[in-house]
């Protein structure tokens, strides 16, 4: 790549940046509820399962994004049902699904005619050139729906994730809200996989939230700071990966982790200056 070329003038870079902006907003907005209920790794598991969906798309010759949405959603709902059943074996059941998802994905891609190792890597760690004009439309629509849903039922999701039993006595539709959150997580994973990749998508749902926690003490404030740092990390990660010629997912996550380190250092200072509550 020529150094003289302005990356912002390139069509594929413009598409990648739009996608990164939307993913940087949507991933932490949904991820904050997963972190709140201490299921930070759920996005990771869904990402594993979505790989089977991607491979299925290759095999059937349909758009991998569509099959990934379907398979990831089914997986997420099953995870939620296992969690609701409260079985101690649920932990192992989840592990089986996650490994099954990765293995199934690699296997099916190997069987399909246009599936190559390069294709697989693009889905696992993201790829700048893989964001097609159609992808931008799909990503815009889905992340718009996600952000709107968080804005509308955010209060209810907060109550359910904070104290599920209390939410039931308060008369909230707890089961419906839980399933809704699982579907939202699945859609987030699929939306983000083009830019961040399925193996790193969960990081963008969790790391900005962890970063925000170092600096603020309220939930709303955490969400706002997480959205800001998520957008900053994904935009600068995409631009950085253009110059370094690396997978954008890896660069985005490294930048996000850098923000976390800065924030946790700053957080120590902030907390020292706060009055100690009696």
């Amino acid at each position: 790549m020529g150094i003289a070329v302005n990356p912002l003038a390139l069509d594929f870079m413009q598409r990648a940046l739009v996608a990164a902006l939307l993913v940087g907003l949507a991933a932490p907005a949904v991820g904050v509820f997963l972190v709140q209920r201490r299921m930070a790794l759920m996005g990771d598991g869904i990402g594993h399962i979505a790989l089977t969906g991607v491979a299925l798309g290759f095999l059937l010759g349909t758009a991998p994004v569509l099959t990934a949405v379907v398979v990831a959603t089914i997986g997420a709902v099953v995870i939620e049902l296992v969690r609701q059943s409260g079985r101690t074996s649920g932990d192992v059941a989840l592990a089986l699904m996650f490994y099954g998802g990765i293995a199934g994905g690699v296997l099916l891609i190997g069987l399909s005619s246009d599936g190559t190792n390069a294709n697989l890597l693009a889905y696992l760690f993201g790829s700048l050139t893989s964001v097609s004009p159609t992808d931008v439309v799909v990503i815009s629509a889905l992340s718009g729906v996600l952000l709107l849903t968080v804005a509308v039922v955010g209060r209810e999701l907060f109550a359910v994730c904070h104290d599920e039993e209390y939410a039931r006595v308060a008369g909230l539709p707890v089961r419906t809200l839980n399933i809704l959150l699982a579907v939202m997580a699945a859609v987030t994973v699929t939306v983000a996989m083009r830019v961040v990749g399925l193996l790193l998508v969960s990081a963008l749902m969790v790391v900005p939230v962890a970063t925000a926690q170092q600096l603020v003490r309220g939930f709303r404030a955490t969400v706002l700071v997480a959205l800001g740092s998520g957008v900053l990390a994904s935009l600068s990660g995409v631009i950085g990966s253009y110059y370094a010629d690396t997978a954008p997912g890896a660069m985005i996550v490294v930048v996000a982790l850098g923000f976390f380190l800065l924030a946790s250092t700053a957080g120590v200072v902030v907390r020292r200056r706060r009055p100690v509550p009696a």
Binding site: Q36, R155, F158, H162, D163, Y166, A170, V209, G218, F219
Partner: peptide
């Protein structure tokens, strides 16, 4: 409910937690 504490994985202010009781 019987709880060890009122905190979860994400910080929330006292007002935010109390306000969630107003939802019904």
């Amino acid at each position: 409910p019987q709880r060890v504490g009122a905190a979860t994985g994400v910080p929330a202010t006292v007002r935010e937690v109390v306000a969630s009781g107003r939802l019904p």
